[in-house]
């Protein structure tokens, strides 16, 4: 892929974009969480990524790109709380080891797979439980297949993955929740879009936009 400096710059640019997006979507995400949760997902994500933005700005100039990603995870763990803190932060932190040797097409697939595995492990949610897993799974599957089987360039693969995540988000609407606070509502959760799946899509959209630049 690109050289170490370009990779660093890309991580920093992505963090900036994601932080902007979370802050912009704070009200919308909270709105979704009001319907089937406790009205804090927007505040959680915005608070978390604003903290990440600051941390990354202060980061060591010679930190590896992989270290920067780890910092993103660690910061989310210690700033977000709730369910999304350990799920996003813990999984990013743990998957960041896959980027130790730099960000390449292959290592990004490995990162994505490790990240998905960790989310599922931590949260215990299967597909169709109406969680972020529903957006993440098709996105990771699509990305992996696009790169490894179809040999698509990472940018195109990412675009397809975003598309897949969006289907996942839409898929959460008609499902009955089985994990997360929405599960407390039983059948009443049907017909509402999952906030965590939605924020997952937003993050991916910003990764794509960063890559396109």
């Amino acid at each position: 892929m690109a050289d170490r400096e370009t990779q660093r710059a890309a991580v920093i640019a992505a963090v900036e974009r994601v932080a902007d997006r979370m802050t912009a979507e704070k009200t919308y995400l909270t709105e979704l969480d009001s319907a089937i949760g406790d009205a804090d997902h927007g505040a959680n994500m915005a608070r978390g990524f604003e903290a990440v933005r600051e941390k990354i700005a202060d980061a060591d100039a010679d930190a590896d790109p992989g270290d920067l990603v780890k910092t993103v995870g660690v910061t989310l763990i210690s700033e977000v709380g709730g369910a999304s803190g350990p799920l996003y932060g813990g999984s990013i932190m743990s998957a960041s080891t896959e980027l130790a040797d730099g960000i390449t097409a292959e290592s990004s697939v490995a990162f994505a797979e490790a990240y998905l595995a960790k989310v599922k492990d931590r949260g215990g949610a299967e597909l169709g439980a109406k969680t972020m897993v529903d957006a993440l799974t098709p996105a990771v599957h699509t990305y992996k297949k696009s790169i490894e089987t179809d040999d698509l360039p990472p940018l195109e693969a990412l675009a397809k993955a975003v598309d897949a995540a969006e289907r996942g988000v839409n898929y959460t609407v008609p499902l009955r929740a089985q994990k997360g606070r929405a599960s407390y509502l039983g059948w009443r959760s049907v017909g509402h879009q999952d906030p965590g799946a939605t924020s997952t899509l937003f993050i991916m959209e910003e990764l794509l936009a960063t890559a396109e630049e």
């Binding site: 804090d40 210690s78 709380g81 369910a83």
Partner: peptide, 12 residues
């Protein structure tokens, strides 16, 4: 004490 309705972070 986490944020309002948000569980505290593991480090706290």
């Amino acid at each position: 004490a986490g944020e309002i309705f948000t569980s505290p972070t593991a480090d706290q």
